[in-house]
Amino acid sequence: MATDHTVPLYEDLSLTLSETGTGRPALVLHGGGGRTTVAGITAHLSRTRRTFTPVHPGWDGTHRPPWLTGIDDLALAYLHFLHDHGLRDVLVVGSSLGGWTAAEMAVRDTAGVISGLVLINAVGVHVDNEPIRDISALDARGIAEYAWHDAQRFSPAPADVPADELARRQANMATLRVLAGTPSMYDPKLRHRLGRVQPPTLLLWGESDRIVTPAYGAAYAEAFADGRLDVIPRAGHLPHIEQPAATFAALDSYLAETNA
C-alpha cells in the first residue's frame, strides 16, 4: 500500500510523495496532468521495486517557492532527494513534462545514481520541423484532440467536470507555464547534452500523439548515447493510460534486456 510522505528538502521546500513496494528504487515523474496520470506506472513498477512518486511543487495545491522557476530547478531537487536518502541504482520514469525533468536529471547526474531512464512522450528538446504543440490556449476538449488516440473516450463533457477539479487543473497549468515556459516547453541546450548520458534510455511514444509526434521522439532518442524509441500503436500522449498492456510490455522488455 502506498504511503504519503512530506520530505524536507530545502529550508523553504518540502516534497510531497508516495512510496510503495520494495526492491531496487524507481522514481516516477508525472506530467502536466498531475500525479494521478502516472498511477498505473507506479502500480506496475511497485510490484518489483521500491517506487517513489512525487507531486511536483506547485501542483495540486503544494507549495512552490518563488525561486523554483524552471525544470532545471525541479531536476536538481529530485537529484538532491535521491542523494539525501542514499538512493542509488535508480530507475527514473517520466511522462511528458516528467520525461523532460528526467532527462535534465540524467545530464546532471555526475554521481551516477541513475541506472535506467524511460521517457514517455517527453517534451524538453527542440527539433527542427517538429514543433511542440502549444496547448496553452486550448480548452480540455481541444487538448484531447491532440493528446489522445481516442479523444471521444477520454474527453469528458465540460458539464461532467466539477468546479473544484477545473480549478485544480487551471492552477496546475499556471504552474506548468512558470516552470516550462509557454509556448516553448523545451530547453534549447538539453538536446546537445544528452550524448553524455550513460544509462540505456528507452523512449516510449504513442503513435497518435500530436503534441509531440513520433518523429520528434525519434530525434530525441537519437540524441542519447544509448537511446531507442518504441512506438505504441493506438495511443497518444499518455500511452500508459490508453494502451497499458503494450506500454508495460515494452517497459518490462527494456528492464529485462538492460538490467536497468
Score class of each variant (00 low, 15 high):
Leu27Thr: 03
Ser253His: 14
Ile132Trp: 10
Leu194Asp: 06
Phe154Glu: 10
Leu166Ala: 13
Leu13His: 09
Leu82Asn: 00
Glu145Pro: 02
Ala218Cys: 05
Asp12Lys: 10
Arg196Thr: 14
Leu82Tyr: 01
Asp139Ser: 07
Pro158Ser: 10
Ala122Tyr: 10
Asp139Tyr: 11
Ala106His: 03
Ala159Lys: 14
Gly23Asp: 05
Asp72Val: 11
Met173Ile: 06
Val38Gly: 00
Asn121Val: 05
Pro57Gly: 01
His30Leu: 12
Leu179Asp: 02
Asn172Gln: 13
Ala75Leu: 05
Thr247Ser: 10
Ser253Pro: 02
Ala249Tyr: 01
Gly31Thr: 07
Ala159Arg: 14
Gly236His: 09
Glu242Thr: 14
Ala167Ser: 04
Pro25Leu: 05
Gly32Val: 13
Glu11Trp: 02
Trp59Cys: 06
Phe224Cys: 08
Arg234Gln: 14
Pro54Leu: 07
His240Leu: 00
Ala151Lys: 12
Asp12Asn: 12
His5Ile: 13
Pro65Val: 04
Gly195His: 07
Asp134Met: 13
Ala250Asp: 00
Asn172His: 09
Ala137Leu: 15
Asp160Ala: 15
Ala122Val: 07
Val118Ser: 01
Leu27Pro: 00
Val107Leu: 02
Thr42Arg: 03
Ala140Val: 12
Ala111Ile: 11
Gly40Phe: 06
Arg88Pro: 00
Leu76Thr: 14
Val93Lys: 04
Pro65Asn: 03
Ile41Phe: 01
Ala2Phe: 04
Leu9Ser: 02
Val90Leu: 06
Trp59Met: 08
Trp148Met: 10
Arg153Ile: 13
Tyr10Ser: 09
Gly142Asp: 03
Glu19Leu: 15
Leu91Val: 06
Leu27Tyr: 03
Val55Pro: 04
Ala250Trp: 05
Leu203Asp: 03
Arg210Thr: 13
Arg141Ser: 15
Ala235His: 04
Ser136Cys: 11
Ala171Glu: 10
Pro25Ala: 11
Thr213Val: 02
Tyr216Phe: 11
Leu229Asp: 14
Thr51Val: 04
Tyr216Asp: 11
Pro158Gln: 03
Arg234Trp: 10
Val7Pro: 06
Gly217Ser: 03
Pro200Gln: 09
Ala144Val: 08
Gly124His: 05
Tyr10Glu: 13
Pro131Lys: 13
Gly98Ser: 09
Asp209Met: 09
His30Pro: 00
Ala167Gln: 07
His5Gln: 14
Ile211Cys: 06
Ala157Thr: 12
Leu194Phe: 04
His240Ser: 01
Ala157Tyr: 11
Pro162Phe: 11
Pro199Val: 09
Thr20Tyr: 06
Leu13Gln: 04
Gly217Thr: 10
Gly32Asn: 00
Glu11Pro: 03
